[in-house]
Amino acid sequence: MGTTQERYSRRGVSRFYFLKAIAAPNNVPTRAELGTTNGTDLSAFISDVEGFALENTAIDTPDMASSFTSNIPGENKADNSSFTFYEDKGSDTLEALLSQGVEGFVVILRKGDIQLTPASRSMEVFPVRVGSRSATYTAANEPAKFKVSFNITSEPAQDLAVPAAS
Rank of each mutant, 00 (worst) to 15 (best):
D92Q: 13
E103K: 04
N56I: 13
G101S: 09
A119M: 06
M123K: 03
V125M: 06
G101W: 00
D113Q: 04
G90H: 00
S66L: 12
Y137E: 10
E55D: 13
D92T: 08
S99C: 03
G51M: 12
A96I: 00
A140W: 02
S67Y: 14
P118V: 04
K77M: 12
R110E: 11
P127W: 01
F68P: 01
I108S: 08
E142M: 04
F85A: 02
D79P: 00
S67D: 12
K89H: 06
T136V: 06
L116C: 09
G90L: 09
E95V: 09
G74R: 03
S120M: 00
T117Q: 05
E124P: 02
R121Y: 14
T117F: 02
L97I: 13
F83M: 06
F52S: 01
I108P: 03
M64E: 15
G112L: 05
S81T: 09
A53T: 13
N80D: 07
D63F: 12
E75P: 10
F68I: 05
T57D: 11
Q115E: 15
L94N: 12
A144G: 15
A96H: 01
F126H: 08
G131L: 03
E75V: 07
A58N: 15
V130L: 12
K77P: 12
V128H: 02
K145D: 01
K77Y: 14
R110C: 11
M64Y: 11
P143W: 05
P127N: 02
N141L: 01
